[in-house]
Design a protein around this nucleic acid. Structure first.
Lengths: 418, 418
DNA sequence: TCACTTTGGCAGGCAGTCTAAGGAAGTGTT
DNA sequence: AACACTTCCTTAGACTGCCTGCCAAAGTGA
């Protein structure tokens, strides 16, 4: 039996330490223990190779006996594997050990409007396998999810990973996600997705704890963990594609907002002249600067594959085509304003630009950068924010899913065998 | 001798629980202790009247013996006073006690461009005395601060509070404040204020721990604690006066940003048409919608006392004067856009509007509300954010200072006698 | 061979919590 | 008036977790 309850309560992305001893339930000495065990685990996971107890003592700042008992726990549970003695450095030979990344697995499911990315990773978050499938259309959310669950199981089989070793699943969805309840409240780009209980459905199908999160939120976690935003505890991932959205990381924690709509800048108003315009369900910024907006500025835009006509547009712009150039410029300016405004509100140390638009057009990124730096006041000259993510989206999706499941899996590991 | 070091490290507004046992420094069992003591204190402070041990046990969820020892500590230190036995409720008579709010005092100093508000409050944050003085002009920051220190000492004397009972001082400044170092980095509205070491200066003068914070940040803490935003852990205070700025509270914690510039929406760009305009050190939004912007739209604006001509303007608008009406409308629209955009990024449960502009003109607030609700997409209809703060600014300043010093004082109290 | 270093384990102590039991001081009922 | 019962608080004892101090193991270097 899996301790899902515990995970749901403690294991999500939100790692903020709660008040202690919530109701005398069994005391609270365990709190300390868990904290320190977590510390040891973090260090162990981050070591690419083997390590010794002495290194853990050094890295965690804990005392030798404490590390000793914690490590022996981890060894007993199988999360850490003993490797035998290593070469001496002038004294007793150290006992080497390594983090057993394959002690469990995590899966990521990134539901896109057209494509869905599936991935399975080890406990360190290293992707082992991934697959991109067209998002099935015409079937209900339940059927779709069950099909995806099947695909995850297949990936697990391919990696010779027994199903019960699936310790956590992260799901990203384009839209508003009620993280607490694991429900996709509304996803305009997935037809028929309103109040879909993704977590419950998938937990039944996969028998593993599931977290559901907005896709851009997952992206910012991924960028922070393994991507362009490493080391930037307060950062923003700004995505421009068909839709426009931002993921906001504050002090290393995801900021979701009161209605789980933080970063929904699709609706950002780009000036008083647009106040009387009704943009429908799509917001001002998204309508003006999203793929749709770009298409409206380019005669042959909007027809056929977006990737194709966008490539043509950018090529034409570079060759001096006035219309094309203007289309790119106007879009870049709007995005630049959005970036600057988000920057003014959040004041991150980095804003990462992602999405199809940036992946294809370095000039556009350049223009955005220019707007941002001109819009910041002289006395506030920040470091140039906005480095287009050079990270392949697929990889990003995979690892962000893993990042999402990271903490969850850690807790799981600890709890099941501790 | 005061344990200032401890306070500086642990007592600020940032109450996020840190990693434990940072380097074997004396062990870490004390951590638990402090946490639980804190819990008891919070409950005790929030009770308006007397209370018993049993109530604390109920409210904190701690065990009876734990509460017993913690309470006896507090009694010994003087933070809690015994009142004697109360009436029985069918059993042994309970021992009543009360929080001794006058066991210490906190002071707040709100440095404004024209006026500076000083206040002294008890440990519960209840204002005891406050004073508004014109901000001295023509003297350097050091001299100014020393004068303010003198005023605080005088207020303390008036309340018959011995100087050593001043446990914490909170300073608000209009501008960018390096909270970690207690330095006002830049305050355009206070002439000559660049890199002023406010904390060091005042700590020497007052011999009490000092925290320095952006004034709007203090305001949002105050609104959350005692004002319009009670219960709203994620909220924004948006100030419009000479300057424009916002304080952002996220999950009950102040969000300062990487450069301590979060919420500096004065520079928010209000549309592509403004990209080529150089607003100088004042940003786009502030220039267009601040007091200056309003003045530019109203012939007799900008001359004389702002309060006077603003009153005239609003009266004229209400009477049907086209120019006045348009000036108010345009300003309101811009502010509405700003509110909506901040809302989109942060997704708070409430945005509180504050500052001279709103205090005077209910119609303006109305218009802002209209813009906000029209700019939010249909499917995202939030609760109407933006309730103009009905809280007197003076009171707000005072209590925000106190709120700011709240945690600090708590730690101090605990530490000095614990 | 001997001193010294590095690594890891064990014993003992301390701090803080909890549960369990008990004392104190009432109310209510017979 | 005696008794049971309630409520409130304290004391006693056990548990958990951390730490320091000491010691054994197993090497290096002179």
């Amino acid at each position: 039996m899996k301790p899902e309850t515990h995970l749901r309560g403690d294991g999500g992305l939100s790692s903020r330490t709660r008040g202690i001893a919530h109701h005398g339930s069994g005391g609270d000495s365990g709190h300390l223990r868990r904290l320190n065990l977590d510390r040891v685990l973090v260090v162990a996971m981050d070591r690419p190779d083997s390590f010794t107890r002495a290194e853990l003592i050094e890295a965690t700042g804990l005392s030798a006996p404490t590390v000793g008992t914690l490590v022996s726990h981890l060894i007993r549970s199988g999360v850490v594997r003993e490797l035998g003695a290593g070469p001496s450095r002038g004294g007793r030979r150290p006992a080497f050990m390594e983090f057993n990344a394959r002690h469990g697995f995590v899966a990521g499911i990134d539901l896109g409007p057209t494509r869905t990315r599936l991935s399975v990773a080890d406990l360190r978050g290293e992707p082992l396998a991934h697959r991109i499938v067209p998002t099935p259309a015409g079937i209900g959310p339940e059927a779709l999810l069950s099909r995806m669950a099947g695909a995850v199981r297949a990936l697990m089989r391919d990696e010779a990973a027994p199903p019960e070793k699936l310790l956590a699943v992260a799901v990203g969805a384009p839209g508003v996600v009620d993280y607490d309840r694991g429900v996709v409240t509304l996803a305009p780009n997935l037809s028929g997705w309103t109040n879909v209980a993704v977590r419950d459905t998938l937990e039944r199908a996969l028998e593993a704890p599931v977290v559901v999160e907005n896709d851009v939120n997952l992206a910012v976690i991924g960028e922070h963990w393994r991507g362009a935003a490493r080391g930037h505890v307060t950062c923003v991932f700004l995505f421009v594609g068909t839709g426009i959205g931002a993921g906001v990381l504050i002090d290393g924690e995801l900021h979701r907002g009161h209605h789980f709509m933080a970063g929904e800048i699709a609706v950002m108003c780009m000036g008083p002249q647009y106040l009387s315009v009704d943009f429908g369900s799509r917001g001002c910024l998204e309508t003006l600067a999203g793929l749709q907006g770009l298409a409206a500025r380019w005669p042959s835009g909007g027809r056929g594959d977006p990737v194709r006509w966008m490539a043509e547009l950018f090529e034409a712009a570079q060759k001096g085509d006035r219309t094309a150039h203007q289309a790119v410029d106007e879009t870049a300016r709007l995005i630049g304003i959005a970036v600057a405004n988000v920057g003014a509100v959040v004041d991150p140390s980095l804003i990462v630009l992602g999405g199809a638009l940036f992946a294809q057009a370095e000039p556009l990124v350049h223009e955005v950068r220019k707007v941002v730096s001109s819009s910041s006041p002289r006395w506030a000259r920040k470091r140039p924010s906005g480095a287009a993510s050079s990270w392949p989206p697929a990889r990003r999706a995979a690892s962000s899913g893993c990042a999402c499941a990271k903490r969850a899996s850690r807790c799981e590991v600890v709890d099941r065998h501790g």
